[in-house]
Each structure stands twice: as structure tokens, then as C-alpha cells.
Amino acid sequence: MAVDLEKILRPVDHPYPPYPAKYMTLASGETLVIRQATRDEVPTLLKHVAPLVFVERDYYDLVAARVYAELLGWYHHRMQDEYVLVAQIDGELAAIVNGRSVSPKRGMSLHTLAMRRGLRVGAHAFAAKMEYHIDILGQDEVLVVAESPIGFRRWMIEYQLEEVFDTAHELGGVPSYSLTRELFDRARNSLVVGRRPVPEDLLAKAHEAILPPSDPPTPPADLLAATRAKYDATGSALILQRWAQDRSAEDA
């Protein structure tokens, strides 16, 4: 009997309810729509995530590389119960957040990747993700970790997350923090915003196409300068930088 290996490798996703889209006004006066992405949209998302893998600031490189892998994992059915939310301004991609359900009672927050900065887009998208786990999926807690100092300040301090250091997070196996239903309720008024339902024209615009970010984070202007700034006497950081520089030259 032939063994269907794909059937073994492919996890079975549980039927979780979808995330209801919402919209909000940003500080710039623009309107942000947050909605659930579909599997079909993954290739488009990958295209917009890929350049950020070479942005060596604020851990964009690390976060983008991991988001890229998680998107692929979802696309190729190698990750169980994953979901992806996208935040869009006029169709333009402003942020991607993703996570998964570990069990019906416990969620696992994966990443928050903001492509527009200075407008709290990432914070709004993160809040939407937490809302999905607690309010829509009805979970009791979400495990969260931060990879960058910016993330740490946003999540651990603003939400006052609980330490659950006996539990390893799926990202890097580091000790987890937890957003419990109680903490979420406390943050609800100040941090979780948005209006529903999204006006039809706005939603249609968002679904029509995920447009590329207009002002995405870019690598430092002079890659070697960053290296000089780190007092790299042995030149090992220089080798890494040169490699990145050659690569982006090839791409161009």
C-alpha cells in the first residue's frame, strides 16, 4: 500500500471562526483597515516581506525572516492553526500580524511586522490580534514574546503582561509572557480600538489588492558605517555587511 506522505506531513487545521474586519482613523487622518488574509494572498505578502529581511535595524531582518518562514509554513500546510491579519491603508500594506492556536484555550502570538512607522499601525494590529484570540476565539490567554526592545515596550510594559517563565515560547524557546483575559479587559479601553462593520467600499478596496508599502523601512544608507560604529576590529561584522551589500547589488 502506498503511503501518502503528504497526508502525514500536513496538519489538520481546526475550524476556528474568522476575524471580523474593523477600521480606524490614524493620527495622519488616514483610515486603517484590519482584516484576515487568505492563503491565496500569501505570495503577495511574501513579495512585500522579502526586502525587509535585509533591513538591519530594529530587528527587521530577524522578524521579517521569521514572518517569511511562517507565511511559507502556512502556505505549504506545514503549520497548524495559523492565521494572518493584514492592516491596510487605501489597499497599501501597513502591517502584518500572525499567530496560532495551541489549544482551544491558549493562543500563541507570533509576529508583528509594521511597514508604516510613527502611526501606531503595529500597535493597532497587535491589539487586533489579541482581540482575535480573546474575544473571537474565546481563549483564556495568549503567549507573547518580544524580539526587539520596541516590541518589549509595546507589549510587556503597555499591557503589563504576566511572566510565565516555566513555559517556552515557540519563537526561540525563550521564556513566555502571557496576556490573560483579565489583562486584556484592563487594556481594552485604552489600547483596543476600531469600528465595525467596515463600510463596504473600504472593505472592497482592501480585498481588491494588497498594494506594496509606500514607505517601507529601508536598510541603513551606508552599511559599512553601521559596522564602523560597532568597533569591529576583527572585521567579522564587515564580512556579513559586505555579503549583504553584494546581495542587494545583485538584486538591483
Binding site: 480606524m24 482613523t25 493620527a27 502611526l119 501606531r120 493597532h124 489600547l191
Partner: peptide, 22 residues
Amino acid sequence: HLHQKITMDGILDSPEAFTNNP
């Protein structure tokens, strides 16, 4: 440093303003 337009609606008047502008 900041090349980001802001509006009174976005930072003071809209329902989301005080989350944008904590």
C-alpha cells in the same frame, strides 16, 4: 525627522484618537 502629516481628527477628535495619541 518626522515626515508624517498629522491631523486634529487623527490625534484628538476621532474615536481612536487617544489610542493613536496616548
